[in-house]
Design a protein around this nucleic acid. Structure first.
Length: 469
RNA sequence: GGCGUGGUAGCCAAGCGGUUAGGCAGAGGUCUGCAAAACCUUUCAGAUCGGUUCGACUCCGAUCCACGCCUCCA
């Protein structure tokens, strides 16, 4: 299958041709661990989780590296504000990150390197850049000489002179050029620092990703992922450092996910308009968040609202309902069959082609809904069940048991007098007795009582099943 | 100011130079003691103005609007 990605480097959708056939080496920019992750981080993680699962399903050997940037100005500042050691802060945030991602069903990276554990590699790379004349020492810091890299700006489409005239670049007396950025920062009193040939200090932002990517993926690899807000300066600077250091192309395909917005404005920590992943998980089943994220194509900007997430419930219920119709309350699965019929094979093909087209998850979801409809109509049997089941899992959806799904609180609401399962079963038994004596008024009263507590009753084939609304 | 992305029905969101995207919501129907699910039918599009074309939501140009990056950011 021809796989295409929109490559930020060329601004075009291009066929994906890996450096080694059927292998994909991927570096994904992780987070700077000074705070909890928010929905924006989740969006990138979920989309790229699907990318990875898709490539694996297509038979690729995938190496997926996602780093933690665990040393930088914000970490130091936050640690000082909160009066805790910086390493305690980063450890706690890494732990929280891993928990949040696991809760969202994001598969852990193959390698999750930390900047502070790669100081030697970073120092080595800076030394190399100094030796080659792409970097210089000034005032105890080491800077990258941006104008020494003639292709600087090729990823972000920026023109050096425009950047300067924008005049938002940092003023720094010691730099040769206002655009130059720090590779190494001289230690200040009380700040974390490491020994180096250039003196006591710590790495600047950007260099850690170049150094860690090189260590785990080599000097030239296939895919580099991250949020679109990292294009400039972070990824532009990574390219400059790596390509100057190695004198070869760094990354073939740059993929950037679009931003999550709230009320038309970017969700960001600096604006303070963010929802953390754990806040959202307190209210929503993780698959609702995944569904919300995958309902739009990864490059588009997407507007977040609670209503938007909650709208996904009907859709997920519909997909789960199709599986439930086959499994029933007992969860008995049909014999496993791959797609055999032409119809099933065509669905499978269309689903994979959707993802192969720059990860078109909305189209992939549309295919799932069509499968669900055929399944509901009885036009696809066991093979349809497994088709829906298996394809959904590439998206990280329908991972729950359908019977359990419908009984779980997919959206936690503040209903007073929540009922336990035992209480629910008891009221249903009372209603059954009322129904048997055709006391419809009492039966309906009990239905209303349960309904007010968020419980929906389903009378089917002489039995009553229930689910949470 | 520079660079970039996008404007699709009540809402969300795709493909496509001519043939139903999909989901939610709405309307009608089948089924059901009631209800739910499911199924069937159905209403509602392509910011504006030009151009190319036998034909444009789809290509080209202009305009307007929104957002992103140009400072830390996923």
């Amino acid at each position: 299958m021809k796989i295409q990605f929109y490559n930020s480097l060329t601004g075009k959708k291009e066929e994906f041709v890996p450096l080694v056939a059927k292998e994909a080496k991927i570096y994904c920019c992780g987070v700077t661990v000074y705070d909890l992750c928010h929905l924006g981080h989740a969006r990138g993680a979920i989309n790229f989780d699907v990318l990875r699962a898709f490539l694996k399903a297509e038979g690729y050997k995938v190496t997926f590296v996602k780093n933690y940037t665990d040393i930088d100005d914000k970490i130091i500042a936050r640690a000082q504000e909160s009066g805790q050691p910086w390493a305690a802060l980063t450890e706690a945030m890494i732990e929280a990150h891993d928990q949040d991602m696991a809760a969202l069903g994001v598969f852990p990276p193959d390698i999750a390197p930390k900047a502070t554990q790669h100081i030697a590699e970073i120092i080595h790379m800076i030394s190399d850049l100094l030796a080659k004349g792409f970097a210089y020492a000034a005032g105890g810091d080491i800077f990258f000489r941006v104008r020494s890299f003639l292709e600087y700006g090729k990823l972000s489409g920026k023109n050096l002179d425009d950047l300067i005239s924008g005049s938002r670049v940092e003023v720094n007396e010691v730099k040769e050029d206002a655009l130059d950025f720090a590779l190494w920062k001289k230690a200040k009193p009380g700040e974390p620092s490491w020994q180096s040939p250039f003196g006591e200090g710590r790495p600047g932002w950007h260099i850690e990703c170049s150094a860690m990517a090189k260590k785990y993926l080599g000097t030239h690899f296939d895919l580099h992922l991250g949020g679109s807000d990292l294009i400039f300066p972070h990824h532009e600077n990574e390219i400059a450092q790596s390509e100057c250091c190695h004198q070869e192309a760094f990354v073939n395909y740059w993929l950037h996910n679009g931003m999550v917005k709230i009320d038309a404005h970017k969700m960001s920590k600096s604006l303070g308009n963010f929802f953390t992943i754990r806040e959202l998980l307190e209210k929503y089943h993780p698959e609702l968040i995944r569904y919300f994220v995958l309902s739009s194509q990864y490059r588009a900007a997407v507007n977040f609202s609670e209503e938007a997430v909650e709208r996904g419930l009907e859709g997920l219920d519909r997909l789960y309902g199709a599986l439930f119709k086959v499994e029933g309350e007992t969860g008995s699965k049909p014999g496993r069959l791959g797609p055999q019929s032409d119809v099933a094979k065509a669905y499978h093909q269309r689903f994979m082609e959707a993802l192969a087209d720059d990860l078109n998850t909305p189209m992939a979801l549309a295919v799932l809904f069509e499968i669900a409809k055929d399944l509901n109509k009885g036009e696809l049997g066991a093979e349809g069940y497994w088709l829906l089941h298996d394809l959904s899992r590439i998206l990280g959806l329908l991972e729950d048991q359908p019977a359990h799904w419908f009984k779980s609180e997919r959206i936690k609401t503040l209903k007073t007098g929540d009922l336990s399962n035992t209480q629910i079963e008891e009221l249903i038994a009372q209603r059954l007795a009322a129904r048997l004596s055709k006391n419809w008024a009492q039966a309906d009263q009990l239905r209303d009582q349960l309904s007010n507590a968020g419980i929906l009753l389903i009378d089917r084939d002489g039995t009553t099943q229930w689910q949470r609304k």
